[in-house]
Design a protein around this nucleic acid. Structure first.
Length: 816
RNA sequence: GCCGAAGUGGCGAAAUGGUAGACGCGCCGGUCUCAAAAACCGGUGGGGGUGACUCCGUGUCAGUUCGACUCUGACCUUCGGCACCA
């Protein structure tokens, strides 16, 4: 019976589909297990990276199903986004056609993987039945005050011709295309994610998220506690009488020798005196020209220019000069900082450059009173600080903050690095934002009954920097839902991260036309028990989705407030040259070639066998042969005629060994699959296979034991290699389907070793190994060790200081 | 610059205080064959020894311990994240 993997793949994929084996029922009495993998963008081709993300996830979901859970492991397509639009521009295909064609092809490829996807639950985000709920959620967020329109300096990608959210900027470049970003002042739609900053920092509702992701989210949110303190500028005769600044080091307030405003700060024109105007204007226009990357570079020279005005530090009445400098960011804090050169590295450099005084107000321990060669950032005693002198700087912090609050000059506050989520996009292929602009009523939401606002089929795709929808007159011209007069539609579309923020709900009820998802089904299935995907979404999708869930929770739409209970990040699959796969490197692996030749199971197993799943690693065209060979051997073993063996144990010890290994293998496999350690699970199955093969050759196994072992081997392997195990299950006369069987269980007593190898050491070095009974007593073990001739030869002439006994493992004789 | 993870045979890796290198690739030898491939069996960290054996060995250097790939400190390298955030 030759093993023909391709034929077996076809046979069972068709059978499972026909039988609806993977249809998931909502009423199943078993406990639910919702395991999701990040849905793919329909780029048109399922590459090995997709397989690496999906095959192990599927094996894990299958493992949970065999453990007795009602497992939902759905799939869908992240179908809005720029590549579709770019295809339209370069090839004249409509984004819809392009996307749906790709989905068609990818469905076929996804089926070849043999996963347990329930295709009735497929979600495609670019269809009105999906994106109408994006609009619906937008309106809910708007009503709740969590969606707002504001003018702000926003990030612009000159290549994508659209604004981006801060999270979508990587080192000053566009996350999608790598183009250096610029800034623009535009009126855009934002989601108030900053209002949830503190709750997003609370990870207590999560179980088993990688520490790395939590740290990244924490750093991204960048919470810092400090004080907002206002400096008096009433002398300048402006309407504004003060400059608010934010500091985390209010204890250094007496060390302030200047103020620096961001060049874009609104007070700059007012504070600039006539004789300084020319220099200030020149500086500002130069700052505008410097690129974002350059401006954000930390080691760039700190520059600035004096405005000619002074501000008063009201706590000590000192008058300090006001500068502008581009090391101060408009987007953080108040866009103005108090300059404390003695205790801030940046201010120190700035003060040196512009010959500003450097006054030490926190005395370093063992300070000799000399000038500093660098800013002193550590703790110490307050000095040169009036009434606060002699306090520790920690005490000074609270004392000064309290005094400022008392006098109304400032107060404790919290600043965040994270900005609100900018969701407008000046592109066509996305969800239209359901808003109308009316000359008399202002900004008016589209009534719920009028949803969805359909994305029109025809639009000019060429990006001009303005939304393509803006040139579509039929789309733009509408009536105000309030007064009925002529009005204009919003022509921007939504960030596609809107789609992925709630798609886990839609899988539960993908065709519901009354709600995003039925409340009973949400109750039944949410929260997602296990989510798997790449770590690159740490501060984008994963953060947005947590925010979105908390927002929905607060609106009473759902009763849970974290979307994903457990998260696992798989690593990245690399080319055989250990480099990232890319067309230009020519190291891209096409899974279809291997699937056709060796079968889906071999590809699945090899991907899991390469190494730990979270580590990723290099693909190997020859390495996969090892896995394929092994599956071949499993096949060959499982089709042997067990009746040709003796039906009574030939060698009871050998049979007991086989049985013990069976139970150990079940235990190992179970524990490893539970923790996504597929590589060692497969290794243990290989060992077991090798053992069975030897036992057959030695004729040291009886019919019954052989049958039990091969049956269990197939069950253990079923999550990883679903096709061939199903075929072999049938060949061995078991009832269809192997995938509806329980995962084997083990007996610790049967798995326990009877004989162990006791390691005998002298001074920690292995000198002898002896076989002893597992239940050996300590005194006996020690005696055996000292009696060993090999140990004695090392002990001879020395004195035994002590012996260390580790039960079941070793005896270490310490000699001097 | 700061934070985090990692560094083990020719290669992917295993072992999380107790036999370093399980399992697999590759390579070498063998069986089968006219021959080759496939398949199967055996060997395979390095040095020394005819051999029983023996010494060295988990990035480097110290330390803790009877015993360290594993724990601690410093350093080197690689990869990720953040990077004027006041």
């Amino acid at each position: 019976m030759a093993f023909d993997p391709a034929a077996i793949d076809r046979k069972w994929q068709a059978r499972w589909e026909q039988d609806g084996l993977h249809k998931v029922s909502d009423d199943d009495p078993r406990p639910k297990w919702y395991e999701m993998t990040m849905y793919p963008y329909p780029s048109g081709d399922l590459h090995i990276g997709h397989w690496y993300a999906m095959a192990p996830a599927d094996a894990h979901a299958r493992f949970r199903r065999m453990q007795g859970y009602n497992v939902l492991h759905p799939i869908g397509f992240d179908a809005f986004g720029l590549p579709a639009e770019n295809a339209a521009i370069s090839r004249g295909i409509h984004p819809y056609e392009w996307t749906m064609g790709n989905i068609e092809n990818m469905r076929r490829q996804l089926r070849s993987l043999g996963a347990i996807y329930d295709w009735d639950r497929e979600v495609i985000t670019c269809l009105p039945e999906y994106y109408r709920w994006n609009q619906w959620f937008f309106l809910r967020f708007f009503e709740k005050g969590l969606a707002y329109r504001a003018e702000a300096p926003v990030v612009w990608c000159p290549s994508c011709q659209t604004v981006l959210a801060n999270e979508q900027v990587v080192n000053g470049t566009c996350e999608r295309c790598g183009t250096e970003i610029t800034r623009r002042d535009l009126e855009q739609w934002f989601f108030k994610i900053t209002e949830y900053a503190d709750r997003l920092l609370d990870f207590s509702g999560l179980e088993e998220w990688p520490e790395k992701i939590l740290t990244m989210q924490q750093n991204w949110i960048g919470r810092s506690e400090g004080v907002e303190i206002a400096f008096d500028i009433s002398a300048a005769g402006l309407e504004e009488k003060e400059i608010p600044t934010f500091t985390t080091r209010i204890d250094t307030l007496f060390g302030v020798t200047f103020i620096v405003l961001a060049p874009e700060h609104p007070l700059v024109p007012g504070l600039t005196t006539a004789e300084n105007r020319e220099a200030v204007d020149e500086y500002i226009s130069k700052a505008r020209q410097t690129s974002e990357i350059e401006r954000l570079s930390a080691d760039k020279e700190k520059t600035g220019v004096f405005t000619g005005s002074y501000a008063v530090n009201r706590l000590n009445g000192e008058r300090v000069p006001v500068y502008i400098g581009d090391y101060v960011l408009t987007t953080y804090g108040t866009g103005a900082v108090m300059g404390v050169p003695a205790h801030d590295a940046r201010d120190f450099i700035f003060a040196r450059k512009y010959k500003l005084p450097i006054r030490i107000v926190i005395a370093p321990i063992e300070w000799d009173g000399k000038e500093l060669s660098d800013a002193y950032l550590g703790d110490g005693f307050m000095t040169n600080s009036g009434a606060y002198d002699g306090m520790t700087n920690d005490e000074g912090k609270s004392a000064i903050a309290a005094d400022l609050e008392k006098r109304g000059w400032g107060g404790r506050t919290v600043s965040y690095r994270m900005r609100d989520w900018l969701i407008s996009r000046q592109r066509y292929w996305g969800t239209p934002i359901p808003m109308v602009y009316c000359d008399s009523c202002g900004v008016v939401p589209v009534p719920e009954a009028d949803l969805p606002v359909l994305l029109p089929e025809d639009a000019a795709f060429k990006p001009t920097g303005e939304s393509p929808l803006a040139t579509n007159h039929d789309f733009v011209h509408t009536q105000c839902p309030k007064c009925g007069e002529d009005a204009r539609r919003e022509t921007d579309t939504m960030d596609t991260f809107m789609d992925s923020s709630w798609y886990m709900m839609r899988y539960l009820d993908p065709h519901n036309s009354d709600d995003p998802a039925d409340a009973k089904l949400l109750k039944r299935w949410m929260t997602v028990d296990q989510y798997t995907g790449g770590a690159e979404h740490a501060v984008m999708h994963l953060l947005y989705s947590r925010f979105f869930t908390k927002g929905m929770h607060d609106m009473g739409l759902i009763d849970y407030d974290e979307p994903f209970l457990r998260l696992f990040n798989q690593g990245v699959i690399l080319g055989a040259d250990h480099e990232k796969m890319s067309k230009s490197r020519g190291n891209v692996v096409n899974p279809d070639d291997f699937v056709g030749q060796l079968g889906a199971d071999a590809v699945r197993c090899f991907l899991m066998f390469i190494g730990p799943w979270d580590q990723g690693g290099p693909w190997s065209d020859v390495g996969i042969n090892g896995t394929a060979r092994w599956l071949n051997r499993v096949w060959e073993i499982a089709v042997r005629d067990a009746d040709s063996l003796d039906d009574t144990p030939v060698d009871t010890d050998a049979v007991r060994d086989t049985n013990r290994l069976l139970h150990q293998t079940i235990r190992k496999c179970h524990n490893d699959l539970d923790r996504f350690k597929f590589n060692t699970a497969i290794a243990s199955l290989m060992e077991f296979t090798n053992h069975l093969n030897r036992a057959w050759t030695d004729a040291s196994v009886d019919t019954k034991t052989w049958r039990e072992c091969t049956e269990k081997l197939l069950l253990l392997l079923a999550p990883m290699a679903p096709h061939m195990t199903e075929e072999l299950w049938e060949k061995n006369g078991h009832p269809y389907s192997i995938h509806q069987q329980g995962f084997p269980t083990w007996d610790d007593d049967l798995a326990a070793e009877e004989v162990i190898t006791l390691i005998l050491q002298v001074n920690g070095k292995v000198r002898d190994k002896i076989e002893v009974s597992a239940g050996i007593e300590e005194t006996e073990a020690r005696a055996l060790a000292l009696a060993s001739p090999r140990i004695q030869s090392y002990v001879a002439g020395k004195s035994v200081a002590k012996t260390v006994y580790v039960p079941g493992r070793l005896v270490n004789v310490v000699v001097k």
